[in-house]
Deep mutational scan, measured.
Amino acid sequence: EPEARKIVEKLINNGLSPEDVKRWAEKNNNPEVKKAAEEYQKR
């Protein structure tokens, strides 16, 4: 999901860690963003 990846990169560029992004995604019920954050961590 390229859109989710863009969101993850934007949040990380704004100073969030991938863990923060995953928590944000869970709080906002956004499994695509959570998955993208996990993939981002593996890179």
Rank of each mutant, 00 (worst) to 15 (best):
E1I: 12
E1R: 10
E1G: 09
E1H: 10
E1W: 14
E1Q: 12
E1P: 12
P2E: 15
P2D: 15
P2Y: 15
P2S: 15
E3V: 08
E3L: 08
E3N: 11
E3P: 07
A4N: 03
A4G: 04
A4T: 05
A4M: 04
A4H: 05
A4C: 04
R5G: 10
R5S: 12
R5C: 12
R5K: 13
R5W: 15
R5A: 14
R5D: 12
R5F: 14
K6D: 12
K6L: 12
K6N: 10
K6Q: 12
K6P: 04
K6G: 08
I7E: 04
I7Q: 06
I7N: 02
I7C: 08
I7L: 11
V8I: 07
V8F: 13
V8E: 01
V8A: 05
V8Y: 05
V8K: 00
V8D: 01
V8W: 05
V8H: 01
V8N: 01
V8M: 09
E9P: 00
E9F: 08
E9S: 06
E9K: 08
K10H: 14
K10I: 14
K10F: 15
K10T: 13
K10P: 02
L11M: 14
L11G: 01
L11V: 00
L11S: 01
I12P: 00
I12M: 11
I12N: 02
I12F: 08
I12K: 01
I12V: 07
N13S: 13
N13Q: 14
N13A: 15
N13C: 10
N13P: 01
N14H: 10
N14P: 00
N14V: 09
N14I: 13
N14Q: 15
N14F: 13
G15Q: 05
G15N: 03
G15K: 03
G15L: 04
G15A: 03
G15C: 03
G15P: 00
G15H: 03
L16R: 04
L16T: 03
L16K: 04
L16N: 05
L16S: 05
L16Y: 14
L16E: 02
L16V: 06
S17P: 03
S17N: 06
S17T: 13
S17I: 02
S17M: 04
S17Q: 04
P18Q: 04
P18E: 04
P18N: 03
P18C: 06
P18D: 02
E19H: 05
E19L: 07
E19G: 05
E19Y: 06
E19F: 05
E19P: 03
D20C: 08
D20F: 05
D20K: 03
D20A: 10
D20M: 09
D20Q: 13
D20Y: 05
D20E: 14
D20W: 09
D20H: 05
V21Y: 00
V21E: 01
V21S: 01
V21A: 03
V21F: 01
V21G: 00
V21L: 04
V21Q: 02
K22V: 15
K22D: 02
K22A: 10
K22T: 08
R23L: 13
R23F: 06
R23A: 12
R23C: 05
R23Y: 08
W24T: 01
W24C: 00
W24I: 02
W24K: 01
W24S: 00
A25S: 03
A25V: 01
A25E: 02
A25Y: 01
A25G: 03
A25W: 01
E26R: 02
E26S: 04
E26Q: 07
E26A: 07
E26Y: 04
E26L: 06
K27Y: 10
K27H: 10
K27C: 09
K27G: 06
K27W: 10
K27D: 13
K27N: 11
K27V: 12
N28G: 03
N28P: 00
N28T: 10
N28S: 07
N28L: 06
N29Y: 05
N29K: 07
N29Q: 08
N29E: 06
N29R: 07
N30V: 10
N30A: 13
N30W: 15
N30Y: 15
N30K: 14
N30G: 00
N30F: 15
P31L: 10
P31I: 11
P31Q: 10
P31T: 09
P31V: 09
P31G: 06
P31D: 10
E32H: 10
E32A: 14
E32P: 07
E32D: 12
E32S: 11
E32M: 11
V33W: 03
V33S: 01
V33M: 06
V33I: 08
V33G: 01
V33R: 01
V33H: 02
V33P: 00
V33E: 01
K34T: 07
K34D: 03
K34E: 07
K34M: 14
K35E: 08
K35T: 07
K35N: 08
K35R: 13
K35D: 07
A36I: 13
A36Q: 07
A36R: 03
A36Y: 12
A36E: 08
A36S: 05
A36V: 11
A37V: 13
A37N: 02
A37C: 04
A37W: 05
A37H: 02
A37M: 09
A37D: 00
E38H: 05
E38Q: 06
E38Y: 05
E38M: 09
E38L: 08
E38F: 05
E38P: 00
E39P: 01
E39Y: 06
E39M: 08
E39N: 07
E39A: 09
Y40Q: 03
Y40M: 07
Y40L: 08
Y40S: 03
Y40T: 02
Y40V: 04
Y40D: 02
Q41E: 13
Q41M: 14
Q41S: 10
Q41I: 14
Q41R: 07
Q41C: 09
Q41N: 07
K42W: 09
K42F: 10
K42A: 13
K42Y: 10
K42M: 13
K42R: 12
K42Q: 13
K42C: 06
K42P: 06
R43Y: 14
R43T: 13
R43G: 10
R43C: 12
R43P: 07
R43M: 14
